[in-house]
Design a protein around this nucleic acid. Sequence first.
DNA 1: AATATAACTGAACATTCGTTCATTATGCAA
DNA 2: TTGCATAATGAACGAATGTTCAGTTATATT
Lengths: 195, 195
Amino acid sequence: MPRDIRLAEKIRQLRHFWRQERRAPSYAEMMELFGYKSRNAVFGLLLKLEEAGCLTKDDHGRVALLPPITGTVRVLGSVAAGFPTQEEEQEADAITLDEYLVKNPDNTFMLTVRGDSMINAGILPGDIVLVEKGPRPNQNDIVVARVDDEWTLKYYVRDAAGVRLEPANPKYRFIRPQRSLEIGGVVRAVIRKYN
Amino acid sequence: MPRDIRLAEKIRQLRHFWRQERRAPSYAEMMELFGYKSRNAVFGLLLKLEEAGCLTKDDHGRVALLPPITGTVRVLGSVAAGFPTQEEEQEADAITLDEYLVKNPDNTFMLTVRGDSMINAGILPGDIVLVEKGPRPNQNDIVVARVDDEWTLKYYVRDAAGVRLEPANPKYRFIRPQRSLEIGGVVRAVIRKYN
DNA sequence: AATATAACTGAACATTCGTTCATTATGCAA
DNA sequence: TTGCATAATGAACGAATGTTCAGTTATATT
């Protein structure tokens, strides 16, 4: 029986390094990280991790961490499913929120929400919306639109009479733009951070 | 007058590389990226970018992209402020959503929300909550708690009689745990993705 | 047109990189 | 204990790294 080298432990260390430095460690750095005295020990270890499918290497041999390692947040089940055990944690997929939420980074912006015009859609004042600039909105997309020289969030609805902008708050009425309709972008995600 | 080297253009290219490869480019790679025929041209360019405060280098000279370059999403004003011009875009700060939302990656999980018990707090079924495992909840924190062998979201409220779990939906009543109170974690953020 | 300044090239340097090799240490089974 | 497979060491190699230096090209101003 071979000696037990705790691969999961190493992966955890690699992930930690990645999160701190935002880059893959060199062999020398891994040597210190794992407590080896030879870079070749790292080489052997990486071979195993590669066989196990935990990572790949790029053209120059540098480790290229796979999403489950790169990722910063683990995706688990639903609230109803409750909290995971230690083993479930290990196996859970992981993603970065950036990759998950932002398809088009160069055209995506964060805006803070003012006003309560979309409160019934679960968008509260102070929330942050991720807005993609450029694409034509689809039916019932939430858009950032200029109405009466002011920018607000509204549903984008096409009907027989053309286009109307509909709030998600009975306090307000829908708006049918007279001549020009300026669409800033389409809301792709809503983010609310506590504290 | 010196020749006009478009620094903003270079930064954009750097950012693009970073997003694709998830790492800083080497000098050789930057040489190709910028269309130079000498790595030393890259060296000179980096000196400028460094002077301009656009980036720093690590111990081995590798470029360490600053948050405005690293970042994936640019932070802009509020919805009321409307949409930015091209120049404003360039100057806007940028952050990664991971850094912004997740303080403690190893103890943070994503859960999908089932049920409407927190609908008045703007948390809808299907939303994703970022839950931090471990910390003691503060007054009025939203927590993932086990109630009657089922996990749900509730406000955590300490009062004279002890602790009660309060929903944000008039359809439901608050709950005062009899003996044990199991707290899975504290909700740090809510995310809603459209599509 | 002449000139000064900056951008760029190309070669060389020491260092570090990932990798290979031969050797030693370690733990498990026979 | 004796084997034996594996882990780890330490030295060496070529390639690539970031950097320096000297020289060339290009541009804007005089």
